[in-house]
């Protein structure tokens, strides 16, 4: 159960795992906090880190705002895209496409990710070779580049055995596969951070293992699991590369549907606009960045609100 047992994690996973662990610890009150020995240098370095991140983030927002300002209006949210008239073009199908694809991703990764994490943490016998093989594979999958998942999606989901075609559902499945390892690892970390004294207390009262998991461990780990899901979803919203391969390439001038017809998503739409030579399309792309950030903010705010609700539910 030591960290040494786990190989190096990729950036996207490490963040989710650390977030999940910290959140659960803050709920169940781990006593490992290192006291108030925060010396000045350490604080300064932390501030520098936070500052760099904030400066970079605000630079993007300011650039997008300044560049995209001429086109900022509700038309941006309600109009369909256009290749001829950038001044009247909007992101409506792309916003809907993103919402559909991400809803599908959430619906897939929460049960699958949490289920896998519960199995690996609470039920699997870690000394058996097949469980270790599963663990190792999940660790490795978390480090596979997203374009590989795009090719996988094209070969197995769009065509091949599943043959969904170029639809939003295929995008959902592909992105779900991409972020699933991250969700599993983050959920495991959140579950592992629940102290075993709580499990023992519950079992000693005559609760079965499933009652212990579902009524004690999962509620205590839920905020941590949600943190992992939020970070995974934030990652999925911004993905363009795998979706380019599984169909989100068309200019869609109608509202997309989940299981048929073409679809687009915000990052892909922005990518298409940004690649055009005319100045107006670049402005449109900058405005699209703001729309993407807005959608991300709305989705994350919902998830954080959810997490907050469960944290308070005693």
């Amino acid at each position: 159960m030591t960290d040494a047992a786990y190989p190096v994690r990729t950036e996207r996973t490490r963040l989710a795992v650390a977030g999940a662990r910290a959140t659960t610890r803050s709920i169940v009150g781990d006593s490992e906090r290192s006291g108030r020995f925060g010396n000045l240098l350490f604080v300064a370095m932390l501030l520098l880190g936070v500052g760099t991140a904030l400066v970079a983030l605000s630079a993007i927002i300011v650039w997008a705002y300044v560049t995209g300002r001429p086109l900022l209006s509700t038309d941006l949210l309600t109009n369909y895209p256009s290749t001829v008239n950038p001044r009247a073009a909007g992101y409506r199908p792309a916003i809907l496409g993103t919402v559909y694809v991400i809803s599908g991703v959430v619906a897939l990764i929460v049960p699958l990710g949490v289920g896998a994490a519960v199995y690996l943490e609470e039920y699997a016998d870690g000394t058996k070779w097949w469980n270790r093989l599963i663990e190792l594979n999940i660790q490795n999958l978390a480090g596979v580049p997203s374009i590989v998942f795009g090719i996988l999606g094209l070969a197995f989901i769009v065509r091949g055995p599943i043959s969904l075609g170029f639809v939003a559902a295929a995008g959902s499945l592909t992105l779900a596969l991409l972020v699933l390892p991250t969700v599993i690892l983050a959920s495991r970390e959140a579950i592992r951070a629940v102290p075993s004294s709580i499990r023992h207390g519950s079992l000693a009262l005559g609760a079965t293992q499933w009652q212990t998991v579902s009524r004690q461990v999962l509620p205590a780990a839920l905020p941590g699991i949600l943190t992992g899901v939020i970070l995974a979803v934030a990652r999925a919203i911004g993905e363009a590369a795998p979706l380019l391969l599984v169909g989100a390439v068309t200019f869609v001038t109608f509202d997309p549907r989940f299981f048929d017809g073409g679809y687009s998503v915000l990052p892909v739409q922005i990518f298409q606009y940004a690649g055009r030579p005319q100045e107006d399309f670049r402005i449109l792309a900058a405005a699209g960045v703001l729309v993407l950030l807005l959608v991300l903010l709305v989705i994350n705010a919902t998830a954080i609100w959810l997490r907050h609700r469960y944290e308070r539910e005693w």
């Binding site: 709920i27 169940v28 009150g29 102290p195 004294s197 709580i198 023992h200 207390g201 519950s202 000693a204 009262l205 004690q216 205590a220 005693w314």
Partner: peptide, 12 residues
């Protein structure tokens, strides 16, 4: 029933 060495109330 069992009572443990360290008090282990549930986070509820």
């Amino acid at each position: 029933g069992m009572v443990f060495q360290k008090p282990n109330p549930f986070p509820k």
